[in-house]
Every structure is written in structure tokens, then in C-alpha cells.
């Protein structure tokens, strides 16, 4: 049943900084399946983007130290020679980014940017490449694609630009698409269109998708499985319906409680107190401990492992399993160290 495409095992990413090493990713394990969407949720700085930039080997080796394993179809990308890595980026993994205006070259026509990808990875004539670029634009739903291909990024709308990025990432028909906050810079209506497009391409061509987002709402719309990240670690992971239906980790509870409900009043919004820890100075034990309303003395002793409790649904919390639901409904007072909201 499960056909693992990308498998991340015990990934550590550390950045050198004047304030000491910054542990952006700290022992992360994840897997993305062929033809399915993995949603990765977390606040800024939780390590979600860094994880997949590490998978693409796009982090600057001068500042970032990466260890662990990232396997694509069983092949460890982290040990691949850089020349072979070039044939992974593009032909096997496509990636799109948050701000498509910044991510497209401002001085090159969008069609040329797509055909350049084709020409870098195969012996293909200029004319064939530009024909395929137009076809790629058509496939992502861009009207009059041959005209659009001759335009520059600044002449297109935000949604069109992100479609161009998707066309470019998928023109070589990779098995995996990594979408790093693809809709954050877009309007809500356009966001829905882009998500629908990605989902449609996933089912049509059997693409594996990693959807990185800080937004639970975005991820819940399209993800099959979800991983919730906090301070460089996954703290909950499982099928989308389970993670959002029966969340197990107090951090996930907090994320869900801080979402506005359409029918709810203002009082239903409960922000998580405090701020994520500094990655250069992590608290002992559970990273969420200092902000957790259910904190026990044992929480500060060691970093809890991600433990599978139900089929495919794992969390990293040492609260006893029975009675977690009850706990969530009757939250304990917030910890003393939380600062009052400004």
C-alpha cells in the first residue's frame, strides 16, 4: 500500500552563527509517498523549509551542516556527487517557492525560463524546447500560453506567476513536487485555484507532493498525511483526518484553537502563549514545554520521541493516552512564564 518516495531519517541541520550553532532541524524523520500529498505544518523557524532545501541540497555548505539520511527511491541524496544531484533537481524533484515574483528571473521571458530547464537536462532543439514550454504553460491552465511565454514575470498576475513556477517545476515530469508555502503570497481565491491545480496534477500524473505551509487551513484542504513541526522536530504525524480530527499533541491543540472558526465568536480564538524557543538555546526536554499548559516535571527531563499510538498516527508527548481528550477540553491555566499578550 505505502509506496515511499522520499524518506527523511534522523535529519539534523545546523547553521553556524555568531551566537553559537543554530539547530534548525534536529532529528527529523518523515516520509512522502508516491502519488500522495504530505502536508508539513509549523510556525516560521520550525525547520520545515530548511528540511526540504536540505533535501534539494540547496543549503550553502559554507554555513549549513547537514547529517542524517534523505532517500529518494532508496538513494541517499546527501551523499550523491553534486553532478548527479543536478540530475535529481528538475528531472526527479521539482520545487516551487513562496513568492513567485522573486523566484522568477526578472530579466528573462517566462517561456525562456521554462525551456532553459529542458535544454539543461536533455539534447533538445531551441524550437522543441520552446514548444514544450508553451505546452507546459497550457497544462497548468494558463490561457493563450504562446503569448504568455513571451512575457516577463512582472507582466503577469500573482496566480499566473505561481502557475508558471509550477509549469517550470513539472516540465521535466518529476516524481516529486516540493511546494514551499506556494500560496502564502496569493489571494485566498487564487490560493484555492493553485491548490486545486496541484491536487489535479497529483492525481493525473501520479505526482508525490510535499506541501509546506504555516497554515493549517491550507494543508487540511489537500494533504493525505500531515506532519506538524516545532523547533526543528516533528511533534505529531499521521493521516490528515486523524491529525485534525483527533489531535494528540498539545501544540497541535494550540494551533487548532488559534484558528478562527467561521461560526465562532471572538472568544473562541485562543492564541498559544509565548514564542518558539531560540534555536541557538533550546530548552531541556520537550521544546514546547515552556509554552505548554499541560506541562509536567518529567517534560523537562528528555526530548520525547515520536511514538506511534494508532495506525499511522504518532505524537511526541508524554501525557498519558487515556484522558487526553478530556484534558484538551479543560485546559489548565497557562504556565507562569508566559508573558501577557501585548
Amino acid at each position: 500500500m505505502s509506496d515511499v518516495l522520499l524518506e527523511i531519517e534522523n535529519l539534523h541541520v545546523t547553521f553556524a552563527s555568531p551566537h553559537g550553532p543554530i539547530r534548525a532541524v534536529d532529528g527529523l524523520s518523515l516520509r512522502a509517498e508516491r502519488g500522495a500529498t504530505l502536508g508539513v505544518v509549523g510556525e516560521s523557524g520550525s525547520g520545515k523549509s530548511v528540511t526540504f532545501l536540505a533535501a534539494m541540497r540547496l543549503l550553502d555548505p559554507a554555513t549549513a551542516t547537514v547529517s542524517g539520511r534523505i532517500r529518494l527511491d532508496g538513494v541517499d541524496l546527501l551523499t550523491l556527487p553534486s553532478r548527479e544531484m543536478q540530475t535529481v533537481r528538475g528531472p526527479r524533484i521539482g520545487m516551487i517557492f513562496q513568492d513567485p515574483l522573486a523566484a522568477l528571473h526578472p530579466l528573462l521571458r517566462v517561456g525562456d525560463q521554462i525551456s532553459e530547464t529542458l535544454r539543461a537536462h536533455g539534447d533538445i532543439s531551441r524550437r522543441d524546447a520552446s514548444d514544450r514550454a508553451v505546452a507546459a504553460l497550457r497544462r497548468v491552465g494558463i490561457p493563450s500560453p504562446d503569448e504568455r511565454a513571451r512575457q516577463y514575470p512582472h507582466e503577469l498576475s500573482g496566480g499566473m506567476r505561481q502557475r508558471v513556477m509550477i509549469a517550470m517545476a513539472l516540465v521535466l515530469e518529476p516524481e516529486l513536487l516540493i511546494a514551499d508555502e506556494p500560496t502564502t503570497a496569493l489571494d485566498t481565491t487564487v490560493e484555492a485555484q493553485i491548490l486545486a491545480l496541484i491536487d489535479d496534477l497529483r492525481t493525473r500524473i501520479g505526482l508525490g507532493v510535499v506541501l509546506i505551509s504555516h497554515s493549517l487551513a491550507t494543508v487540511s484542504q489537500v494533504a493525505d498525511t500531515v506532519a506538524v513541526m516545532y523547533a526543528g522536530r516533528a511533534i505529531e504525524r499521521g493521516p490528515c483526518s486523524d491529525v485534525f480530527g483527533q489531535p494528540q499533541h498539545p501544540y497541535t491543540w494550540g494551533l487548532l484553537d488559534s484558528l478562527p472558526a467561521v461560526d465562532g465568536g471572538h472568544e473562541s480564538l485562543t492564541p498559544i502563549p509565548g514564542a518558539p524557543p531560540s534555536l541557538a538555546d533550546l530548552p531541556p526536554g520537550c521544546r514546547f514545554g515552556p509554552r505548554c499548559g499541560y506541562r509536567m516535571p518529567a517534560c523537562g527531563e528528555r526530548v520525547p520521541d515520536l511514538v506511534e499510538r494508532h495506525a499511522g498516527h504518532a505524537d511526541a508527548c508524554i501525557l498519558p493516552m487515556d484522558g487526553r481528550e478530556g484534558l484538551r477540553r479543560a485546559p489548565i491555566a497557562h504556565p507562569a512564564n508566559s508573558e501577557p499578550a501585548p
Binding site: M56, Q86, L107, T117
Partner: peptide, 29 residues
């Protein structure tokens, strides 16, 4: 440091092309 340089690398262009065709071109304008 621009995003579009990361994009050029992410689509698997050889580093030489990233530097000349993408970075240098924009820098010389």
C-alpha cells in the same frame, strides 16, 4: 542571494550557467 538564483539551482542548472546567465546578467544591468 536572490530567490531566482535558488530557483535556477532548484531546476538543476549547472552552477556555471547559474552564475553567468542568471546572476551576472542581473548584476551587470
Amino acid at each position: 542571494g536572490e530567490d531566482y538564483i535558488r530557483t535556477a539551482r532548484a531546476k538543476g542548472l549547472p552552477e556555471r550557467r547559474v552564475v553567468t546567465h542568471h546572476a551576472l546578467r542581473a548584476s551587470l544591468v
